[in-house]
């Protein structure tokens, strides 16, 4: 019904109609995925314009952290560096993807205020922009992952395909969380601070720098932490280990329920979001 050639906008016509409009927004964003990609790419390029190493600066700082923490904690915990270094490296890099996508999700609509208030661009375009930007950053940090895999001989045991599956499940979940905090932040300006605090807290509560060996399997402290499931489904296969099947189930269910909830919130607030800004 709607195309570049035909635009129809009407007042509210009941919930079903709002959902169909939200779905249309999603579909249009898919047709214009090239735009989301261009915007994401432009964000990365423009943030580091004039810098020689660009996004690799973050890679370097992550690399330093990996080295420092890897060596120090291995000693403190009495674990071999060969075992601990790759573990921490992957923890830091993949947790970076999670906190980046969620924290930056707060700005998704706020930063797009100008464009949203004078074009008919789909709102989902800006959600994908945030997600893609963080995936582009991840691609830079992959240098660290590949390094530890090569240096510590993990390529013999790693299962990259399974890890990719975990990454897919993780990104599916991250994107709904990112959208949800994006809507909330547009309306309530305290949300970004709140989200940042939660993510700061989460990095210590999630086994990023430490091994969960102290806990019995499936301890509530771990199973109730969604970031644990995300991290373990990406990291374990790369370390040549097997993630608990429960983690896949939790992530799959969270993705379905989370998207259902977020999409409903989006459908109901969609016409208001531009006025929140």
């Amino acid at each position: 019904m709607e195309s570049a050639q035909h635009m129809l906008r009407t007042g509210r016509r009941g919930t079903l109609f709002e959902f169909s409009m939200a779905l249309r927004d999603l579909i249009t964003s898919w047709h214009r995925r090239g735009l989301a990609w261009s915007l994401a790419w432009h964000d990365v390029v423009s943030r580091y314009r004039g810098s020689i190493l660009g996004p690799f600066w973050i890679t370097i700082s992550m690399g330093l952290m990996v080295l420092g923490i890897g060596l120090l904690y291995a000693r403190l915990f009495g674990i071999s560096v060969a075992e601990f270094m790759p573990y921490v490296a992957m923890g830091i890099v993949f947790f970076g993807l999670m906190s980046g996508t969620i924290n930056e999700g707060c700005d998704t609509f706020v930063h797009a205020a100008n464009m949203l208030s004078q074009t008919a661009l789909p709102m989902f375009t800006f959600v994908w922009r945030t997600v893609l930007r963080n995936l582009i950053n991840l691609a830079h940090h992959a240098v660290i992952i590949i390094s530890v895999i090569v240096i510590f001989g993990l390529w013999r045991v790693a299962d990259p395909l399974l890890a990719l599956g975990g990454l897919l499940l993780t990104v599916l979940n991250l994107s709904w969380i990112s959208l949800l905090v994006g809507i909330a932040s547009a309306r309530f300006r305290d949300i970004p601070q709140f989200v940042m605090s939660v993510m700061q807290f989460a990095i210590f509560m999630t086994p990023v720098f430490w091994k969960p060996d102290a806990f019995p399997d499936r301890h509530a402290f771990l199973t109730l932490n969604p970031f644990y499931h995300m991290l373990t489904t990406i990291r374990a296969p790369l370390l040549g280990e097997q993630a608990d099947g429960l983690s896949y189930i939790v992530l799959a269910i969270a993705a379905v329920l989370g998207w259902a909830l977020t999409f409903s919130v989006f459908a109901v607030t969609r016409r208001r979001i531009v006025h929140y800004l």
């Binding site: 635009m7 129809l8 906008r9 009407t10 007042g11 100008n114 008919a120």
Partner: peptide, 26 residues
């Protein structure tokens, strides 16, 4: 331009729309 949704009533535009509302857009 399609940016603001009506609260009531309806807007129908046929044809490609170009909105030159703000030169600094993007």
């Amino acid at each position: 331009s399609g940016a603001y949704e009506p609260d009531e009533g309806q807007i129908e535009v046929r044809g490609r729309i170009a909105a030159l509302l703000d030169l600094s857009l993007g």
